[in-house]
Amino acid sequence: MRFDEEFFNLGYLDTLSYKDTFVHRLDPRIKIIVTLIFILFVISFNKYEISGLLPFLLFPVFLLTAGNIPLKAIFKKVLFISPFAIFIGIFNPIIDRQVLIAPFGIPVSGGWLSFFSIIIKFILTVSTALLLIAVTSFPGICEALSRMKMPKLFVIQLLFLYRYIFVLLDVALRMVRARDARAFGNKGKDIKTFIRLISVLLIKSIDRAERVYQAMLARGFNGEIKVLKKYKLGFTDLIFGISSVLLFYIFRNYNISNYFGEIIKR
């Protein structure tokens, strides 16, 4: 069932993010910035680029291995490629039929090139985004956002959301199981039942928010919430940041794949 799977995946990724490795210990600010720069570099390639993109795989592979993240945690998600990217990309081979290259005498049209370019960009950006959270706990990301001057109210919103996702998913999961236990085939999954189910979930949520508010008041809540500062920007963080960006820069400007190819051919 989809629900259970999503729920467990979420929990799995979350568990991984509390590991203690070199990349987990890096300041979240550096990781967020480097990741965003990485994505910008990747998607700045022209739409037919393939070979120039490949060296960029080094970064997600580094996060994966240095962060001691099991490959399957990320691989499954990436394989499950966003239907939208495929949906949009698949029109390219149909529409753009101009042959652009003919390696080893096999003609390849521009549409196929741009389709594969989309897929590779997709793999790079999606795996890196997932790895970012797998090597940085969500509270760490929130701390970074707050220190990068994101509005505090929004950071607190993210923290509360994160805290109650697991609680409400659990409630929702139990409700869905109860429904499916009595729904045969698609009967019982109709809109009417759904509206009732989700309304009850909504009421439970609002009541819970009220109780949480009471609990906050009980401990002297006066409208202020402090976001903890745990990380400190250190030498290692800077080294990691600078060397990563330098590497991206080199990859972007020199097609490493072509150089390797030239060397081999010689």
Binding site: F160, Y164, L168, A172, K189, M216
Partner: peptide
């Protein structure tokens, strides 16, 4: 503050419940 957080979680959880 808690209401927004919990309702965000509600939407998140609610989006996982499907219907025909």
């Amino acid at each position: 503050i808690p209401l927004m957080g919990v309702l965000g979680a509600f939407i998140f959880a609610g989006q996982m419940i499907n219907f025909t």
